[in-house]
Structure formats: structure tokens, C-alpha cells
Design a protein around this nucleic acid. Structure first.
Lengths: 125, 125
DNA sequence: CCGATAATGATAACTCATTATCATTAAAAC
DNA sequence: GTTTTAATGATAATGAGTTATCATTATCGG
């Protein structure tokens, strides 16, 4: 039987309020405001549970370990700042990507990541 | 002083002939045909050296460890088969991606990965 | 051919993210 | 409040990829 816990709620809220995909350690830090003694193992356990419940999705950025964002979002991509490392959600897509696949190949999905400087890091040039 | 070695040539040739990015262990296997006692440490050492010499580039596919391909190639992207795990080079790009970045952001580069079934795996459906 | 030393091969060591362990804590049904 | 047991926190263990170590081998200028 599944029970509620302050920790799981704190983890879910941290992901929901971020509006961008978070690393487990980012979730750990953010959720500690609502659940002070939160351990990193509990973060991983609940990320697994929230994925199984289709509440959160894994996001892979090339070269990075998995991040997590709310499920049930429209199709989108991500921008990774090469200065601060932060990831931003982009509600945009170039479209028509299946045409890029070679003859005989079947494209089912795609991942696009833009790299550069986020607004804050661009100002600080 | 830098010397030539059968092993380094075998590693460089394996990457050049593949025409697609290879994992270190794939390079290890392929290059063993020309350098039978090749050790995996030598593969890593030479990949580092070849990168420093701008002869090969690292390619990151989301969720995977680094692959290596020849440098000095035209702009391109990759297709990853979700059945066999193989990666194919795609000499195509949707273009106009800087427009997708939010106001104030500066895009410098991008990564696109298509997922689906390669020709062989599509046939075997 | 010789000598200096770059490069190699085998394997131990390391890194870092993630998972397992287990005693303790705390939901929630009664 | 009591009881059951799911969930937690602290930390050890794991695993995959990569790097370091060091004795041995092989390149190449002389």
C-alpha cells in the first residue's frame, strides 16, 4: 500500500515549480526547503516511483546524467547554457524531421538540444 | 617526441573506415584486426591524442557514453536505432534553429538525434 | 645496430551516479 | 492511542567507463 510522505510531496513540488528539467541533486537541494532531512536515496527512490506513476519523465541531455521534468507537457526541446550549465525548456520544434532520415529508415522520435549562453550569462558576456 | 605505432594507425583507420561514430569498445574490436594484442587503455590513450591533434571529434548521443568520429566533416547529425543501438551519420539539418532560442539567449550550436529503426531493423520489424 | 625513450598491455585504481541494506521513523487503518 | 508496515536516512556497495601505474616492447635518430 502506498502512503503519502512529506518527502515525496516536496520532491514532486520541486519538479513542478522548476519549469525545467532538474538533476537529482538539484531536486535534493530544492526539496530540502520543505523536507529538511531529505536524503539523496529518497530522491532517487521517489523519482523512480513518480516515473512509474507517469507523473515525471526522464530527460537526457547529451553527456549529462538524467534530468527529470513533469510528464504531461506538450512536445518541447531544451537549451543548455554552456556557461552556467543550466537547462531551459523550449516550447518550439523545427518539425519535418522524419525527412532527414535515410531511405528505408523509420523515425519514431527525436531529441534536439540547443547550446549557447542563457540570458543571464549572455549579459555577463 | 611523437612516434608512429601500429596501434595508433589501426585506431585511426577503424574510425576513418566506419563512416559513423564509434564507441571505444567498438574501436577496440575493429582495430584488433590490424593490431591483434591491442589493449583498451591504448584505445583511450590514442583517442585522447587524436582529439588533441584535431583528427577526431567526440560525439555525444543522449544517455550514451562518448563516441568518436573523424574531424573535418561537414555539419551533420545522427540517427540512433532503438532496436540494435547502432548510430548512423545523417548529412542533413533542419536549419534555422537559432530562432527557437528565447529572447536574450545566444545559440552557438545544436545537437539533433533522430530515433527509430534503421533499415535492417525496420525490415525485421 | 644501438640507445634513448615513446608507446604499449595488463590490470589496479578511480570517479561518479545510482542502488542496496537495514535500523529507525512515521503514515493511516483500526 | 495502538499496530502494521511503507517510507526514510545514513551509508556501504555496486557498476560502467575511464585513467593511472609500471614493467616491457618497439620506434627511430644517430
Amino acid at each position: 500500500m502506498i502512503r503519502n510522505s512529506r518527502q515525496r510531496n516536496a520532491i514532486r513540488d520541486a519538479i513542478a515549480q522548476a519549469g525545467r528539467p532538474l538533476l537529482p541533486q538539484e531536486i535534493h537541494q530544492l526539496a530540502q526547503q520543505a523536507a529538511p532531512r531529505l536524503g539523496i536515496a529518497t530522491v532517487y527512490r521517489n523519482l523512480q516511483a513518480l516515473q512509474d506513476a507517469d507523473e515525471v519523465n526522464q530527460v537526457m541531455i547529451p553527456g549529462d546524467s538524467p534530468r527529470f521534468e513533469l510528464a504531461e507537457q506538450p512536445h518541447h526541446h531544451h537549451f543548455k547554457c554552456t556557461a552556467c550549465g543550466g537547462v531551459t525548456t523550449l516550447y518550439a520544434c523545427p518539425g519535418k524531421l522524419a525527412e532527414l532520415a535515410p531511405e528505408g529508415y523509420q523515425m519514431h522520435s527525436h531529441e534536439l538540444t540547443l547550446y549557447g549562453h542563457c540570458e543571464d550569462c549572455a549579459k555577463a558576456h
